[in-house]
Design a protein around this nucleic acid. Structure first.
Length: 289
DNA sequence: ATGGTAGGTCTCCTA
């Protein structure tokens, strides 16, 4: 039987061909990062530093807080990150996918009809589609009768569950700031956060239902199954590192075909200690495809 | 039960 060794970023994978693809012996891993940057214009330098130090193939950013035409791109391009697919608006939200490998715009959807730039998708030549989401934070009060924003958060995820992920094809990666920490080990105190938006049972149920309907795998938790794991620490804490009251709000999910090829995920916690940091740190997964 | 910090359209909205 003929075997082909794939360079995933250079070759179109044809899963329908008769040729056997010896997937585990290929040698071009694809590393994806997701990071809520909280203003891309203010933190352009931090993105540059991260790209230099960690060299992901693709980075998905949320809360760019910028019109697309005002996103700085020159310094990213100098490092080889020449491709960017983004959606933006003034001051709020905004998502971008920045890549060393060619990207094709795969559209965006205004979930829950909020009029917000919270989703963008890009397709790689290998046929993999990356969906980058900034799910609404949901305000402070976890009751949709008292707080419209909490309802919008549930509506956004319900719409994903009832239409979008039902149709999601294989070879999809689904990442971003989901603003929900689903498991006990995803928060510093499960007991103390049960009524705090981001860890309430209703949000968690909605998110995990959506994950199940889409047959999506939380690859970061698959690769790091045990122990506390955070991607966000509040700006309001006096000493984020010492008190360590974190939450895992940022996620990398994938359809099962791709999830089967991931072995490594990691979170670069030190980024929270860089000068003028975002309150989120980047999360990484390598797909050995 | 409260307040704490940060970014942008900046004394008010968002997170």
């Amino acid at each position: 039987m003929e075997q082909i060794y794939l360079l995933a970023s250079q070759v179109d994978i044809d899963y329908n061909s008769n040729t056997s693809i010896k997937k585990w012996e290929t040698f071009m891993p694809l590393t994806i990062a997701t990071w809520n940057i909280n203003s891309i214009r203010l933190r352009e330098g931090l993105v540059v530093r991260l790209l230099q130090e960690e060299k992901p193939d693709v980075i998905c950013l949320q809360e760019c807080k910028s019109l697309v035409e005002q996103i700085p791109t020159d310094e990213f391009a100098k490092l080889g990150y020449k491709y960017i697919i983004a959606r933006g608006q003034k001051a709020y939200n905004g998502v971008a996918i920045i890549s060393k490998i060619p990207l094709e715009d795969a559209g965006s959807t205004d979930f829950a009809n909020l009029g917000h730039a919270r989703h963008v998708a890009a397709k790689l030549k290998s046929g993999i589609t990356i969906h980058n989401h900034y799910i609404p934070a949901g305000g402070d009060v976890p009751d949709r009768e008292l707080n419209e924003k909490f309802g919008q958060k549930l509506d956004y995820i319900s719409e994903l569950r009832d239409s979008f992920v039902k149709e999601i094809p294989q070879k999809s990666i689904f990442v971003g700031d989901f603003n929900i920490a689903p498991f006990e080990d995803d928060v510093w105190s499960h007991k103390q956060l049960q009524k705090i938006v981001s860890h309430t049972p209703i949000e968690i149920e909605c998110l995990l239902d959506m994950q199940k309907v889409g047959n999506l795998v939380d690859v970061v938790r698959s690769n790091i199954p045990n122990g506390k794991l955070y991607s966000w620490w509040s700006y309001r804490a006096k000493d984020w590192r010492t008190t360590n009251r974190g939450r895992r709000l940022d996620h990398i999910w994938a359809t099962k075909d791709l999830a089967a090829f991931t072995k490594k995920s990691y979170i670069v916690k030190d980024v929270r200690g860089w000068e003028k940091p975002s309150d989120h740190v980047p999360v990484f997964t390598t797909f050995d495809i």
